[in-house]
Amino acid sequence: MGVSTMWAVALPISLTGIPIAYVLNKTGAMEQQFFVLVAGVVCLALVAIIPAAMMIIRGEKNDPFFYVLSIFTFSSVMDLVIALENDGFISSFMTFYLLEGEPYLVTAHGTMILYWDGIAHLLMYVLMVAGHSKRQGWYREVGLYWAGSIAHSMVVFLPGNIAGKYGMKWSILLNVPYLIIPFWAGYRFLKSGVKPQKSVSKPLSVALWKRPQDVFFVLYLLAATALAAFRGMTVLGCNAEMSQIYKNQYDPYLKDDSTYPMMQMLIYLFYFIPYYVAAACGLWGGENHTWMTDWALIHAGAAAQGQFSYIGGAIHASTDPNYRLPSDPSVRLSFFLINGALFLVPQLMALRFVWGKTFTHELPPAEPILSQRKKKAFKKHM
């Protein structure tokens, strides 16, 4: 049974979560946190074990990641159901989970990450399965993008849950696999990169100003660094007049008591800035190292997930009106220009590294000394 066949088993199993959730919602036992946790653990265990067991019984060996792919497929389906229920499109499916499981999912940020997981991540799983089945290189590239996206989602979501107004409940433990597995999978994707050939690499002397697309990206990275530092200091309580004006008039969502916007800005401050600096230095030198492509994909996934959640949260109806994006056209324009750029440019930069021209060329491997001697001897006989 190949990966595509396993997916054909895992996807229907994941879809069974919808009727199961409907039945559990009608069960009185789900009014207690402990039973919600038990139900979640049992469901996750079953959707992981059944497809994996089928592969083991048939003696099929495959990428270990695909043994747990059904867990993420299941969560994507259920997250989309919860998001639709939050926005009133459906009802009576996950009410018990929102009350006694993870009530912080009813927030604007929670709803947006559910939509992203239920649509974007599910699409990534389909692409990874298709790429792996056809032995296409973009399986790894999509995997790196997904790892950046879901890891970023969790490092903002979990601290926000703990620090936010809803506090911790037992069901937060259900997020542990979604925190550990993406980092493990991301590490494996990074390690599985194409090994460079044994050849001498000589950088081309192409000045930065002769590469207009890279000039744009360097300027963006410098501006993004300054913005990340400014917004990070703002959420940490900077009393400078400019910070207060920005927080109160242009981006009041930073003050949301769910604390997710604050966590988002801290991730930009402490994690994105080092990447911005490293990428700008790499582009400045004109070297297209493997790490630049890999981390551009990881960063693009993280930026897309983060900005989708942040922009959506700022305009979502469930956000307190005091923290929602103001209706002033000039304020809205500046908000969407800034946050839209933080979403779009990382995607363009990832495409530049994946599909763009390199700025290194490889010289052919040096011939062995023995071969050179044979050629000289042959010329003498001629």
Rank of each mutant, 00 (worst) to 15 (best):
Y166T: 05
L37G: 07
E367L: 08
Y268V: 04
T111M: 03
H361E: 12
L37N: 10
S4Y: 07
N175K: 02
I172P: 00
I57E: 10
G40H: 10
F335L: 05
S205Y: 06
S91W: 10
H132E: 13
A229R: 09
S91L: 08
A53C: 12
F74A: 09
Y145D: 02
D320A: 15
V9A: 03
A185C: 14
L98S: 13
Y246P: 01
F65A: 09
K195V: 03
A83D: 00
F359W: 15
P261Y: 10
A229G: 06
E100Y: 15
E362Y: 11
R58E: 15
M265G: 05
I338F: 08
L123F: 11
P12K: 06
I298W: 01
V354N: 05
H299I: 03
D294T: 10
G193N: 15
Y271D: 01
I90K: 02
V156K: 05
Y271S: 01
G356E: 11
G101I: 01
A240D: 07
D117S: 05
Y115N: 07
D117W: 08
E100K: 15
P326W: 03
P364G: 10
G160E: 05
A185G: 09
L114T: 00
A120Q: 07
Y139R: 06
L333M: 14
V23D: 00
Y276Q: 12
D257W: 06
V331R: 04
I315Y: 02
A366F: 13
Q249E: 12
G131D: 15
G282R: 09
S309P: 03
L158S: 03
A280E: 12
V354E: 09
V77A: 12
F336E: 10
R188Q: 14
I18T: 06
F183L: 14
K376F: 15
T290I: 10
G286L: 10
P203K: 02
F72G: 11
G110E: 07
L158G: 00
S171Y: 12
V331D: 01
F359Y: 15
A8V: 00
G312W: 09
V277A: 11
H361T: 08
I162Y: 06
L15F: 13
Y187K: 13
A147M: 02
G285M: 04
K61D: 08
G312V: 15
S76Q: 09
S4H: 04
G88C: 01
V331L: 04
V354L: 15
E100G: 05
G118K: 04
G118R: 05
Y260N: 12
I369S: 11
W116G: 02
